[in-house]
Amino acid sequence: MLRWLLIVVLALLLFQGLRPWLERMGLGRLPGDVRFRLRGREVWLPLGTTVALSLIAALIGHLI
């Protein structure tokens, strides 16, 4: 369980860093993606984008 939690946190941090690039591709505005301001800082939790990219990766992995 701890391993999965660590993987999810690392994936969210990776998506946070790739946010500008992902937004140009249209990702980041899916249902389930959460944005809010916390103490003057914008926080972005790409939950919907994470699920979509995971499904795409799983399909590619299954085909290979």
Rank of each mutant, 00 (worst) to 15 (best):
V8N: 07
V8Y: 12
V9L: 04
V9A: 05
L10Q: 03
L10A: 06
L10W: 00
A11H: 09
A11Y: 14
A11N: 07
L13I: 05
L13E: 05
L13A: 08
L13F: 12
L14C: 11
L14W: 15
L14R: 12
L14E: 05
F15C: 02
F15N: 01
F15D: 00
F15M: 10
F15K: 04
F15P: 02
F15I: 00
Q16C: 02
Q16I: 00
Q16R: 14
Q16K: 14
G17H: 08
G17Y: 08
G17W: 11
G17D: 03
L18Y: 06
L18E: 03
L18T: 01
R19S: 02
R19G: 00
R19L: 00
R19F: 00
R19E: 03
R19Q: 06
P20T: 03
P20I: 02
P20V: 01
P20N: 05
P20L: 03
W21L: 08
W21Q: 10
W21R: 12
W21E: 04
W21H: 07
W21T: 03
W21P: 01
W21N: 01
L22S: 04
L22A: 07
L22F: 13
L22N: 06
E23A: 06
E23D: 08
E23C: 03
E23R: 14
E23S: 09
E23H: 13
E23Y: 13
E23N: 11
R24L: 05
R24P: 01
R24N: 06
R24D: 05
M25N: 07
M25F: 15
G26S: 03
G26E: 02
G26A: 04
L27V: 09
L27F: 15
L27K: 15
L27Q: 14
L27T: 10
L27Y: 15
G28N: 07
G28H: 05
R29F: 13
R29E: 12
R29S: 11
R29C: 02
R29I: 03
L30H: 08
L30N: 05
L30F: 09
L30W: 09
P31L: 10
P31Q: 11
G32P: 10
G32A: 07
D33K: 13
D33V: 08
D33T: 10
D33S: 11
D33E: 09
D33Q: 12
D33L: 12
V34K: 10
V34D: 02
V34T: 07
V34G: 02
R35Q: 08
R35W: 15
R35V: 01
R35S: 05
F36H: 14
F36Y: 15
F36G: 06
F36M: 10
F36W: 15
F36E: 04
R37L: 12
R37Q: 12
R37T: 05
R37W: 14
L38S: 14
L38F: 15
L38G: 05
L38H: 15
L38Y: 15
L38A: 15
R39W: 12
R39E: 03
R39Q: 07
R39P: 00
R39A: 07
R39V: 01
G40Q: 12
G40K: 14
G40T: 11
G40N: 13
G40I: 09
